[in-house]
Amino acid sequence: MHGMPNIVLIEDYRAQSFLQAYPDAFYDLSDYFDIDDFADYKKAPTSFEGGQYGVPFDTGVTGLYLRTDYLEEAGYTPEDLTNITWDEFLEIGKDIKEKTGKYMISINPNDPDDLRHMIQTAGVWFTEEDGRTADISDNEAVKEAVRIYNALQEEGIAHINTDWSSRVSAFNSGAVVSVAVGNWMTPNIKAEESQAEKWTVVPIPRLPVEGAVNASNLGGSSFYVLNIPGKEKAAEFLASTFVSNKELYQDLVTEIGAIGTYLPALDGEAFQIRDDFFGGQKIIADFITWMEEIPSVNYGMHTYAVMDILIGEIQKYKSGKSLEEALEDAQKQAEGRLSN
């Protein structure tokens, strides 16, 4: 926030590690607002040892963006891809690739953020509920996610991107049929005006494991107040804006396309808008419906450390190591890293 150096915005995946690593650096905001006014899944990352440190900001609720014209060409409708599992996604993808020659999805094996939203559909994470015990080799969701992630490449239905710009260009240039990602990607999809009315959004596929739902999250962040002089003023500023000002949330979604997680504000007009780019679909309203179903998980303190270990082992799995062995080695490495 401009002129407010005591307020910082931290990605939810990193929040617990900051709160733990710098315990005295953040100001407890419990007295300033009620966390229950926000989407449920935001509570775990923003609170720590009984204190409420973060004011939840935007949601990373995910959806499956689809090119309706490509689907039609291959004989599918968006309904066929609604509330499906990732295995079904894989099968449909193979068929569409055969019929249209288009890749089903674009992924970046060096930054496999898809794994994160995949496993959250099952309500689990790479660490146990305590946020610090590695949970990889005995975790059915991780196993399935890694298997499917690799299959997307093996079956030749995944386009490979290497960074943000090639990721965006994959769908802007019409190379892929679908984009499985957080709602924050919307402005980038709409940037290619020539594709207007060719897109729709359906719920994200779920993992083929017990209890998984067709709703997940990718990214999203929250506000924190640094424990330095001026903290009370900063906390009051947050309380008077992000914890009460409904207008603000309408403006945010209209101006920059960011969907807040403050539930009382999410029934305003701006959230009911029909988007012509998506064939008149009320995409924001849909995202909010899915947001309320996101399984709550504790991202813990080691998300990115575990991700990097997994990237290494997936590479080995790709070149012939068995899935079980790769995940066991990942588990061992993670235990070594996390115990310190």
Partner: peptide
């Protein structure tokens, strides 16, 4: 350029 990847290679 590579973010350390593929894997840690």
């Amino acid at each position: 350029i590579t973010r350390g990847g593929p894997g840690n290679e």
